[in-house]
Simulated assay, not measured.
Amino acid sequence: MTQAVVRVEAAPFDVARESARLTEGRTDIGALVTFTGLCRDEDGALAALEIEHYPGMAEAEIGRVATEALARWPLQGLLIVHRFGRIAPGEPIVLVATASQHRHEAFAAASFLMDFLKTEAPFWKKQRLAGGADAGWVTAKDEDEAAAGKWRS
């Protein structure tokens, strides 16, 4: 049975290296879908995001939804890496990689996982402006909630 790999860490990750690890020696994989979320600079206004989480709880909750993805789609591999701490514009925040025999399953699973991470994963993001000011916590967007709603039925 395929197992999900979930990591929550402060260090930046290398998408190519992570993808290679997921597919190394595998000839049963016909599709690998990766999504990498990057920190934006918000037109030069943002100096960094500070991402907080509850250690243990974040991994457990992401693991729970990863298990749900494995039950919904026939995946040969699943990797989720989410960073915390201070993240500068241009740096990666999150990586979701799904591997399957066919592209449709890999795309659907990756979309499902990102919709969950955007709406329900226990992470909190605070914006730090280029001038040094604190712009407060990032709030959920209605469009993210609507996207996640399609998976709840």
Rank of each mutant, 00 (worst) to 15 (best):
K141V: 02
P122M: 07
R26A: 09
H82S: 05
L95G: 05
R128T: 08
T98M: 07
E18C: 08
G37S: 09
S100C: 02
A148M: 12
D41Q: 04
V138I: 14
F84S: 06
I80L: 14
L113N: 00
L32P: 04
L38R: 13
M114F: 02
F84W: 14
A147W: 03
E91K: 10
A99E: 04
R103W: 04
S111Q: 14
E91C: 12
A97N: 02
T23R: 13
L79F: 04
L38A: 03
G131E: 12
A69R: 07
Y54W: 13
T36V: 15
I87G: 02
M57G: 03
A130S: 10
A110G: 13
G136R: 04
G149F: 09
A135E: 03
A130V: 01
F123Q: 08
T23C: 15
S19I: 00
P92G: 15
L22N: 03
E42L: 14
L78W: 06
T139W: 00
A20S: 12
G44D: 05
A99H: 09
G90D: 06
A10D: 10
M114S: 02
T36I: 11
T27R: 15
A58K: 03
S153W: 06
I29A: 08
F112I: 01
Q76T: 11
T23S: 14
G136H: 08
W151H: 13
K118N: 10
I51C: 08
Q127L: 09
G63K: 07
V96W: 01
E143T: 14
K141Q: 15
R128F: 05
A146P: 01
R72P: 07
A20C: 03
E9A: 13
C39R: 15
H104M: 07
A108C: 03
E52K: 08
I51T: 12
D142F: 00
F35H: 06
R26F: 06
E24Q: 15
L129I: 03
F84H: 15
D115M: 04
T139G: 09
V8W: 00
F84D: 00
D43Q: 13
R21K: 11
P92W: 12
Q127M: 04
L113V: 05
G44C: 05
G149T: 09
V65Q: 13
R103H: 02
A108H: 02
E50G: 00
A66R: 12
L49P: 02
P74W: 06
V6D: 05
E24T: 13
A11N: 07
T67L: 06
R86A: 12
A88I: 03
A45C: 01
R40P: 11
V6F: 09
G90S: 07
I87S: 01
R17V: 13
D144T: 04
V65K: 12
Y54C: 08
A133T: 14
F123R: 06
R17G: 06
G25N: 07
W151K: 06
